[in-house]
């Protein structure tokens, strides 16, 4: 008997009464101003937020960021802030992104309760860019900010494409004496641009 059959036989050996599945359609937390809460949440997890309106040129706003000004290698998969020749299409091996300083990508939605931003690799030839970059810049449209995780999972499609991630703040660790250190393995900083359109 294979281990698979053996495990399944073990699970069926003793009948267990089927427990009911709960109703998830409950009232979950909502905020008076989800945008304001989202900004507070991103800030609390170590990120920075910049709100831009229609009149602002996003590329110019990004240009003003010190991390961007001092960067040697930058890349963008953002449709809102593309970089001339800075896409990832020409890169065949993800290891070539080792020295990436700044990466810009578009978030699908933002979650007010925890500052998380949902991203997929639909437009990312190399998902590693999100993690290997020294500094990460994400955009999220104001209208795509939801109150809580329940709303978030209702709106996203986790199966297509095959990779999706909620990112909440920059990479961090507190493994040495519980001292919080920003910039463990992933991005050392996260800047979120909330687009007012």
């Amino acid at each position: 008997m294979s281990s698979r059959d053996d495990i399944l036989a073990q699970l069926r050996y003793k009948s267990v009464i089927e427990m009911p599945y709960p109703d998830l359609n409950q009232s979950w937390i909502k905020f008076a101003d989800p945008i304001e809460t989202f900004i507070a949440s991103v800030t609390a997890v170590g990120g920075e937020v910049v709100q831009v309106d229609r009149e602002t040129n996003l590329t110019e706003a990004i240009d003003l960021l010190p991390v961007y000004r001092t960067a040697k290698m930058v890349a963008s998969c953002s449709t809102h802030a593309p970089i001339e020749g800075g896409g990832l299409d020409d890169i065949s091996d993800p290891h070539d992104l080792e020295n990436l300083d700044v990466f810009i990508a578009d978030g699908v939605l933002g979650v007010a309760e925890n500052g998380a931003i949902w991203l997929t690799d639909e437009k990312l030839p190399h998902r590693v860019a999100l993690f290997i970059t020294q500094h990460l810049i994400l955009t999220v449209r104001r209208q795509n900010i939801v109150h809580n995780m329940h709303e978030a999972y209702q709106q996203i499609n986790v199966t297509k494409p095959g990779f999706g991630v909620f990112i909440s703040g920059p990479s961090k660790t507190a493994d040495i004496e519980q001292s919080l250190v920003i910039g463990a393995h992933g991005a050392r900083s996260l800047t979120v641009f909330i687009l007012d359109w």
Partner: peptide, 15 residues
């Protein structure tokens, strides 16, 4: 005591 982990990654099939 964090509202969510920094990275919550969803893998559906190999890349």
């Amino acid at each position: 005591g964090q509202p969510i982990t920094t990275y919550t990654s969803h893998f559906h099939g190999p890349r």
